[in-house]
Amino acid sequence: MVESDFDKIDVVLREFEGRKGALIPILQNTQAQLGFLSKEALEYISEKTKIPVSEIYGVATFYTQFRLHPIGKNIIRICHGTACHVANAPKISEALYEELKVEPGGTTKDLKFTVEEVACLGCCSLAPVIMVNDKAYGRLTPDKIKDILAQY
């Protein structure tokens, strides 16, 4: 981590100073600032909050939202909720993995895309759905994947 990264964590820590049980929001905000939670970042948070790093690591690995590795520039979330599953979401995933040559949860070599499978994005009526960053694409078929990726 560079010097400015520590400053960013300091800002986050100041915001939650003295608040009971603030570890999860601290990690969320740190991740929002730095993209992922590096070992150094976790150790620094531990040092400042006096929460043992083992406990912080336990929390960080329990919740799926937290990432311990760098991620791609664009995050693609494939919905695998019930409605999307019934509407053939597995075929959308396959098409994506095929196109990007990555494994589930993986990041492309050029660090352009990270692909995650998520439980439900809550747009069931548009199934099957994927979300690229904050934009949702609904009523998909495998052949639409190429065009969507080309926009990024």
Binding site: K20, L23, I24, P25, V59, F62, Q65, A119
Partner: peptide, 25 residues
Amino acid sequence: VYEGAGAFVCGEETALMKSIEGKRG
């Protein structure tokens, strides 16, 4: 408002409260 961090089990009430306390849910 407290934002969850992605764990289905946190919908269970005792797990949810653990999560608000900043622990594993």
